[in-house]
Design a protein around this nucleic acid. Structure first.
Lengths: 210, 210
DNA sequence: TAGATTGTTAATCGATTAACAATC
DNA sequence: TAGATTGTTAATCGATTAACAATC
């Protein structure tokens, strides 16, 4: 099982299972069956068992899954038992808002660096205490502060150049908010967040689907 | 062809094709083959032809696709030949940042209403001229200002209640930024934007994939 | 006409779901 | 032991890609 190729969809669902399980934990639920968990997550029970089976056996036949154990096991699978350091590149409206967003910290992601090119912004202190540095210092600080993941919130025109610099600095994971497809070597994993594509999809459903 | 079930993935790719085609248009490219377009979009040429075939015949055999025509045809398919009115519910960091985000306007999406529950915020004027209203006025203003799509950027705990109110106000499309799965009737189409799931996926790739 | 590229069918690939033996 | 639910195999479903006849 260990060496089967894991579908991307499985990885994304594991995050969703984990969140639901964390909620259940707060409600003092000890044990849950794949059937009940599936209902809460809006998926098929067999789907959950299959997803987990890629990584091992985590349940007890005839009983179900211990909620707290399963949370920890999914964290282990996803690599969330340790903190990850983030750098934000681009401190316009979106970047500044995201860096203040409590959700990242809650999930174990910590901003340890922030960059912009605007001399007006460089040197300023953010609400979380971080000081904005100039992009010129990107490589040096990324290494010094052990940044693992870069978040790009620059204008689309700058995104590729920033991505190149991140890769040079040794970054292997990028979350790209700029509405362009950025090219990186295979060693680097890019995820895109694109609001307008989602809106286009809603527009399609509103005009034709209905 | 008209009545085949269209894969969601096809709709999302159409947005991507459109954006690439718009870039090509600015570079004065007149005609493009599925092969060249595919390379630029990072997909398979047959994929593009198949996606388009769900909706009709838009190319010329032996020649390719006229860029400007194809842009318009995709806009037609997605329902983007008309403007769509948006309402933002929740004007914390994220909501305020998104409402200032130029990309929405550029793609034909217009904010015509903004809501919050905080009395400190209600009555304030946003940079785009819009005044923040109290959520109590949601149903009335949604109808009055002909809002088509609601964007939820409230805390997770409020998201479901807001979604219910939106549906009651006649809204059929929701873009949900709150990290919860919201339940709506079938008539309403929900898309979710969840940063932490994307980060989890990057964390997984960094710790195991590499 | 010869060359090129579409539209479309058929083959392949991968992901989801149903079913059930294993087992707590 | 009887009842329940997992882990896993096999069946189904859907999406992607290759191949090629149609045709500009």
């Amino acid at each position: 099982m260990k060496f089967a190729k894991i579908p991307m969809a499985t990885i994304n669902r594991l995050s969703i299972y984990m969140r639901t399980l964390q909620d259940l934990l707060e409600e003092d639920v000890d044990v849950i069956s794949s059937e009940r968990l599936a209902k809460q997550c809006g998926v098929n029970p067999a789907q959950i068992r299959k997803d987990l089976a890629y990584f091992g056996e985590f349940g007890v036949r005839g009983v179900g899954y211990r909620v707290s154990d399963l949370v920890n096991q999914i964290k282990e699978i996803l690599g969330l038992q340790r903190p990850w350091n983030l750098a934000m590149i681009g401190l316009g409206n979106l970047g500044s808002a995201l860096i203040r967003h409590a959700n990242f910290v809650k999930h174990g992601y910590i901003f340890t660096a922030a960059f912009d090119v605007d001399p007006q912004k460089v040197g300023k202190r953010l609400p979380n205490g971080l000081i904005i540095n100039h992009v010129d210092e990107l490589e040096e600080l990324i290494k010094e502060r052990e940044v693992h993941i870069g978040l790009i919130t620059t204008p689309a025109s700058e995104a590729q150049s920033i991505a190149n610099q991140l890769v040079l600095a040794g970054i292997n994971g990028i979350l790209n908010f700029a509405p362009v497809q950025i090219q990186v070597p295979d060693c680097c994993h890019v995820e895109n967040v694109d609001f307008t594509i989602k809106l286009d999809s809603i527009a399609y459903h509103l005009s034709s689907g209905l």
